[in-house]
């Protein structure tokens, strides 16, 4: 090789950088998220929409709710099985899912998502003071 020293140094540096995710996780057992349902939530069987929809689209739904309540002034949401709900994070969502730490934060922390709900809304009591 010509200029082998320099090229090999560059090559090793490049490969080390490009394989970052492989060695970064070495020796760290990633904790998988295990969101817990409260007894109340378990009893309800389904959320305002089916579980699979809620899993992927809950942020979309919350965003729509906010817009409709704050800008449209309507508070009635017709959800799964034509059931009517009051569009309210505090009074509807958190009624069942009162365990923010064990429910919301489990997955949000895992996926590195920082929703700004709590910049306006009060955090449920159990999670207060711990961040």
């Amino acid at each position: 090789m010509y200029d082998g020293g320099k090229i090999l140094t560059g090559l090793i540096l490049g490969v080390v950088l490009l394989t970052f995710p492989f060695w970064y996780n070495l020796g760290r057992a990633a904790k998988m998220p295990e969101p817990e349902l409260t007894a109340k939530a378990k009893q309800a069987k389904y959320c305002v929409e089916p579980k699979s929809y809620m899993k992927a689209y809950h942020m979309d739904l919350l965003n729509k709710w906010r817009d409709e309540v704050v800008r449209g002034g309507s508070r009635i949401y017709v959800g799964f099985k034509a059931k009517e709900y009051d569009m309210s994070l505090q009074n509807t969502c958190l009624k069942c899912h009162e365990n923010k730490k064990k429910f919301c934060d489990e997955c949000h922390n895992f996926a590195d998502v920082k929703p700004y709900c709590w910049e306006c809304h009060l955090e449920p009591k159990e999670a207060k003071g711990e961040k």
């Binding site: 492989f22 998988m32 992927a56 689209y57 997955c107 895992f110 996926a111 998502v113």
Partner: peptide
């Protein structure tokens, strides 16, 4: 067309580990 992002991360993380 959102996907279940937690499931996605479980997959990708399982690949690199």
């Amino acid at each position: 067309f959102k996907v279940d992002i937690v499931a996605v991360k479980k997959l990708t993380l399982s690949l690199v580990t």
